[in-house]
Design a protein around this nucleic acid. Structure first.
Length: 265
DNA sequence: AAACCGGGGGA
DNA sequence: TCCCCAGGTTT
């Protein structure tokens, strides 16, 4: 399925990335993550509903504030079914103070659609019950493409739920990942530009490890690196595990490959 | 492509 | 102050 009519033409205007380079990047990245990851509660569950709630809350919202909201929200609405039964007013109450309230309304709408219509909620006439990575059946689909069709779920969140709950081998790009991948592999790309973002999605795909299990770690690690080391304002290249393969690392390398950046004052 | 949606935090 | 933050939807 797919790619059937892709000509043998060049896929994109993106940088050339060879397998050894991508593999070295991924290996170093995931090793770093195992040692340095923060202990975040939504990384301990594989419940698709709980993970979906976390991803929605985390949109444009800092981890530190989501922590308490997430715990409280799930205590109040432990399952998708119970959320569907709740009055929207009560859902919004739990969201009060988080901002971007359309997220809460969409989540509630989504819960009712999925509970009431099943697979029809994402446009399938019929579908087998998905199974989360912990072996439990899930009312939510596992494929990013299907998740994407639900209200409030865009490309990023679809990929996130697919890998983090179902441990599928799916790519994802958020602001962290876009920034990290651009700096490491394509310094000329501007993550702000929609045009360049499509290229970054391709790069994200290209960096994925082979298995879904490793992909879970990989995607978490990409975002963690962007949150802790390769941040928007400050690049902590000295603490970065992938400087040796990074095309824009600010370490003083004697290599003659980069242009003169002898800017000093 | 740009506007819009919130509120808090860091540099 | 500015701009960033696990984005998505609408115009």
């Amino acid at each position: 399925m797919g790619a059937a009519l892709t000509p043998a033409r060049r896929r994109s205007a993106g940088p050339r990335l060879d397998k050894a380079e991508l593999r070295a990047f991924g290996t170093k990245l995931r090793a770093w993550y195992r040692r340095n990851a923060r202990d975040l509660p939504w990384r301990k569950t594989r419940d698709p509903y709980a993970i979906l709630v976390s991803e929605l809350m985390l949109q444009q919202t800092q981890v530190s504030r989501v922590l308490e909201y997430w715990q409280r929200f799930l205590r109040r609405f432990p399952t998708l079914q119970q959320l569907a039964k709740a009055d929207e007013r009560h859902v919004l109450e739990q969201w009060q103070g988080l901002g971007y309230y359309a997220r809460a309304r969409n989540l509630h709408k989504l819960s009712r659609a999925v509970v009431r219509e099943g697979a029809a909620a994402w446009g399938d006439a019929d579908a087998a019950t998905a199974v989360a990575a912990d072996g439990r059946p899930s009312p939510l689909p596992a494929e990013a493409e299907k998740l994407r069709r639900l209200p409030g779920i865009g490309a990023y969140t679809a990929g996130a739920v697919s890998t983090f709950a179902f441990e599928r081998r799916a790519a994802l790009v958020d602001t962290n990942v876009a920034r990290v991948l651009a700096r490491v592999f394509a310094p000329k790309l501007n993550p702000k530009r929609p045009r360049d973002l499509t290229l970054l999605w391709q790069i994200s795909e290209a960096t994925l490890p082979r298995t879904g299990k490793a992909t879970w770690t990989h995607n978490q690690a990409l975002m963690e690196l962007g949150a802790l080391v390769c941040t928007a304002r400050v690049k902590r290249c000295g603490a970065c595990p992938v400087t040796s393969v990074c095309r824009s690392a600010e370490t003083a390398r004697a290599d003659a490959d980069s242009r003169g950046r002898a800017r000093r004052r």
